[in-house]
């Protein structure tokens, strides 16, 4: 197992290198000039050029790439072209809101969708099943921002149980931190639970038809044990895969959720950096996000082993 993990981590290095090259190339090949933005409307060509030079944008592209690679290799992701803050500092600042949102949303998704999917399969074609499927479809169909506006209107404006937006860092006030995160997490979690619920239901339906489930029931085992120990455990691997995909979905979903709920997370950091062509932030943040994807996939792969003992990577 250890060898497998090390091999996977080593295999991630070329992946990250390819991501780095692609991101750097796309950013620098695409039109868009931070100097022209910063120079403003009244700047003439000479002023824009002066600013470009001061920003280091007139240096040859290979040199700029070398600086980027060298920085990444030494853990220095550079400075934001605009604010001057260190990119690693900005990412650290923004990571907490995004990871908190992702973890809480995922928790809500899993806690809601797995029981709902299992029960819907168990009670196939019942009213419960139909309600769960309608909700899952709704969660899939309603855009994040629309759901966000609805919950803000209901829970922030009408009954004022939650703040309409904003974020409080965990270290500042834990309860306020949770209070500010619940609504956006619900929005993201509700949408994320749709796919997991459907996948859980579908795989459970397959498994519930298997002989070993019939055997378990004929042995006189309780329905709960049959469902959870015999059926769900065998249905869990595809669900785990979907959860892995959902993490990716959450990371893209947080861009919208963070915007609607005014949360200063990585999603907004990336979109704002793209709109301003803050190259340093874009390339470094995408690299970090790519790393998160790789790590999440690795974790999911490892979890397969624990869920399904038949899987042996070392062999």
């Amino acid at each position: 197992m250890q060898r497998y993990i090390i091999k996977r981590l080593l295999a991630a290095l070329p992946t990250m290198a390819i991501v780095g090259v692609v991101v750097f190339s796309i950013i620098h090949l695409a039109p868009g000039d931070p100097a022209a933005i910063m120079a403003g409307e009244d700047a003439d060509y000479e002023q824009v050029e002066a600013m470009r030079e001061a920003m280091g944008l007139l240096d040859p592209i290979p040199l700029q790439f070398w600086r980027f690679v060298k920085g990444v290799a030494t853990g220095d992701l550079g400075e934001s072209i605009f604010s001057g803050h260190s990119v690693s500092g900005l990412i650290m600042d923004r990571a907490e809101p995004t990871l908190s949102l992702a973890v809480l949303s995922l928790s809500i998704s899993i806690l809601v969708s797995i029981p709902a999917g299992v029960l819907a399969a168990w009670k196939m074609n019942s009213i419960f099943d139909r309600i769960v499927m309608i909700l899952a479809l709704t969660g899939y169909a309603v855009p994040y921002f629309a759901l966000g506006y609805v919950v803000i209107f209901l829970f922030a404006v009408k009954v004022e149980w939650f703040p309409a937006g904003g974020y409080v860092y965990m270290s500042d006030n834990f309860w306020q931190y949770l209070h500010h995160l619940l609504l956006p997490s619900f929005v993201l979690g509700f949408a994320g639970s749709a796919l997991i619920t459907r996948m859980t239901r579908a795989t459970m339906l397959e498994v519930l038809k298997e002989d070993y489930v019939r055997t378990a029931r004929s042995k006189g085992l309780g329905e709960t044990i049959v469902l959870l120990r015999h059926a769900f455990r065998n249905a869990a691997n595809p669900v785990l895969t979907v959860i892995g995909f959902s993490v990716a979905g959450f990371i893209s979903g947080v861009v919208i959720t963070e915007t609607v709920f005014a949360i200063p997370g990585m999603g907004r950091l990336i979109t704002e950096a793209i709109s301003q062509r803050d190259f340093q932030i874009i390339q470094s943040t995408i690299l970090v996000v790519a790393l998160i994807y790789v790590m999440v996939n690795l974790i999911i792969d490892i979890l397969y082993v624990f869920v399904d003992p038949r899987i042996r990577y070392d062999s």
């Binding site: 404006v157 937006g165 609607v260 709920f261 005014a262 907004r268």
Partner: peptide, 18 residues
């Protein structure tokens, strides 16, 4: 100074006194 990128959220913030 807070940054509220979404106008609807901003409106909600104003209405609720945040």
């Amino acid at each position: 100074i807070v940054e509220v990128p979404d106008k609807t959220t901003l409106l909600a913030g104003l209405k609720t006194g945040k």
